[in-house]
Amino acid sequence: MSKENLKLIVIFLALAVIVIVLGVYAGNVLFGDRSLSVLKSLQEERYFLHKDINRLKDENARLQKLYLEREILDNEVQK
């Protein structure tokens, strides 16, 4: 084996290791804990929670209005 062949083999092995490491990293990013599917799921959950918060605020306002109306009626009946 000549020095040139040995040098080419070392370069090839180094490039192979780099490609494997980058492949594992890319796989982890795409399918791991920080994946795109997790991000989409969290965005959908956030949207659902914001809708639920607005619904609960509206329901709370309606119930407070009903409570105050009944409180006023009870006060008028007691007088």
Rank of each mutant, 00 (worst) to 15 (best):
M1V: 07
M1D: 07
K3Q: 13
K3S: 13
E4P: 01
N5M: 10
N5S: 11
N5P: 00
L6M: 06
L6T: 05
L8C: 02
L8S: 11
I11A: 15
F12K: 12
F12W: 07
L13Q: 12
L13E: 14
A14Q: 09
A14N: 07
A14V: 09
L15G: 07
L15E: 10
A16E: 11
A16W: 07
V17T: 09
V17Q: 02
V17Y: 03
I18V: 06
V19Q: 04
V19E: 05
V19H: 01
V19C: 08
V21A: 15
V21W: 00
V24F: 14
V24H: 03
V24W: 06
G27Y: 07
N28P: 00
N28R: 02
N28Q: 08
N28H: 08
V29Y: 07
V29F: 12
L30W: 14
L30M: 14
F31V: 02
F31A: 04
F31E: 05
F31C: 03
G32I: 01
G32F: 00
D33T: 08
D33N: 14
R34I: 01
R34K: 15
R34V: 03
S35D: 02
S35W: 00
S35I: 00
S35Q: 00
L36D: 05
S37P: 01
S37K: 15
S37Y: 02
L39P: 00
L39S: 08
L39C: 01
K40E: 15
S41G: 08
S41T: 03
L42Q: 07
L42V: 01
L42M: 05
E44V: 12
E45D: 13
E45S: 09
R46M: 04
R46Q: 13
Y47V: 10
F48R: 14
F48L: 12
F48D: 15
H50M: 12
H50K: 13
D52N: 09
D52R: 12
I53N: 07
N54A: 09
N54H: 06
R55W: 03
R55S: 13
L56Y: 01
L56V: 05
L56K: 14
D58T: 05
D58G: 06
D58K: 13
E59H: 00
N60K: 11
R62T: 14
R62V: 10
L66Q: 09
L66H: 02
Y67R: 13
Y67L: 13
L68H: 11
R70Y: 10
R70C: 03
R70S: 14
R70G: 11
R70N: 15
R70Q: 14
E71I: 00
E71F: 06
E71S: 03
I72P: 00
I72K: 10
I72F: 03
L73M: 11
L73H: 05
N75W: 07
N75G: 02
N75M: 09
E76F: 02
E76K: 03
E76S: 04
V77A: 10
V77M: 06
Q78T: 04
K79Q: 11
K79W: 02
K79F: 05
